[in-house]
Structures are given as structure tokens and as C-alpha cells.
């Protein structure tokens, strides 16, 4: 049942996340403590098992990897000291790299826009992020009243801050890609 591709998936995740997935004894303490587990399609501990089974597609397409809020509750409580959020990060990174079209597209898009914003300006600009997100995911009228209220309170600024040496940041992003 466990074939070579399963073994290689396991090795990749262990290496990328630095977490010993095999130490998991499936007590599901992580599941019970997880604030978003009830919205996940695959419980966090089951992700470990599916990695062992080599069910890559099922994992990378799952909502779970994108719904993990990285709150670290599981990692703090895990009796076997597995930082599951790091496993989820590794899986998200693979999903993006391999262009997997899975569930929770909006979350993935949001993260992507967040990063490209930093690449552009060196800093995150909230209004630009929200605008771009709405352009890509729809829901134009969502939170519109909240937005106006925040604008009136002076919490949102229309002009985006930029670091002085934007070129430097772009270069850093390119270098990071090369290193990876």
C-alpha cells in the first residue's frame, strides 16, 4: 500500500516542515483544540496519516491546509511535539508551487496578493490588498459599510507606503525564488 511515491512525499514533508510526522499517535488532541477543525474537511491528524499513505492529491486539494490559522494551539499541546502548523505551511507551499487547484481558493489568493504587495512596495497596504482581493474574488459589497466607517475614523489611508529601495525588495524576492 505504501509505495515509493508515498515514501518520497513523507520525506519531502519531513524535510520541509522539520516535523516528525511519524511520531503522531493519533490521539487527536490537536483536533479537539483546533479553533477551525470543525470547518476543515480533513482533521489535522488525518493529514499526517494521508501523507503516510501518499494521498498527495487529496491533501493538497483539501480545505484543511488553507484553513489552518497557524494559531499553534496544536503544536503547543502535541504530546509528540509535532508543530502541525509547520506541516500545513509545507503543504501550502507545495500546493502553490505545483499549481494545485484545490479548495479555499480565496485564502490562497489573499496570501498571494499579500506577498505580491510586499514585493511591489516593501510593505503591505491594506486598502490595496482589499481592493485587489475583491477584484480577484468578487464580493464587492462585502464589508462596504465597515470600510466607510473605518475610513471616516482615519484608520484606512488611500495612499500606500513604500520603502525607499523597492528595487532591493524585488531583488530579494527573486533571490529567494532562486534559493528555493
Amino acid at each position: 500500500m505504501i509505495d515509493e511515491s508515498a515514501k518520497s512525499l513523507l520525506a519531502t514533508i519531513r524535510e520541509k516542515s522539520g516535523q516528525d510526522i511519524l511520531a503522531c499517535y493519533h490521539c487527536q488532541k490537536c483536533v479537539v483544540g483546533c479553533p477551525v477543525a470543525e470547518f476543515m474537511d480533513v482533521p489535522p491528524n488525518a493529514i499526517h496519516r494521508l501523507i503516510q499513505y501518499g494521498r498527495k492529491d487529496e491533501i493538497l486539494k483539501s480545505a484543511t491546509i488553507w484553513l489552518c490559522a497557524a494559531c499553534e494551539t496544536c503544536g503547543t499541546r502535541c504530546p509528540n511535539d509535532i508543530d502541525i502548523a509547520r506541516v500545513m505551511d509545507a503543504l501550502k507551499q507545495i500546493a502553490v508551487k505545483e499549481g494545485v487547484k484545490g479548495k479555499e481558493r480565496d485564502v490562497a489568493v489573499m496570501h498571494g496578493l499579500f506577498m505580491s504587495g510586499i514585493r511591489k512596495r516593501g510593505r503591505m497596504h491594506e486598502v490595496s490588498l482589499i481592493r485587489d482581493l475583491k477584484l480577484r474574488t468578487g464580493g464587492f459589497f462585502k464589508d462596504i459599510r465597515l470600510g466607510i466607517k473605518m475610513f471616516r475614523l482615519g484608520k484606512l489611508s488611500l495612499s500606500a507606503e513604500c520603502v525607499k529601495n523597492v528595487k532591493d525588495i524585488k531583488q530579494m524576492f527573486d533571490r529567494a525564488k532562486a534559493i528555493e
Partner: peptide, 11 residues
């Protein structure tokens, strides 16, 4: 536990 962790025995 060493068996599952170090040798990959699937329980």
C-alpha cells in the same frame, strides 16, 4: 513508539 517513528511501521 520508536518502531513507528524511526522505522516507519504503520500502526
Amino acid at each position: 513508539n520508536e518502531s513507528t517513528k524511526d522505522e516507519g511501521t504503520l500502526y
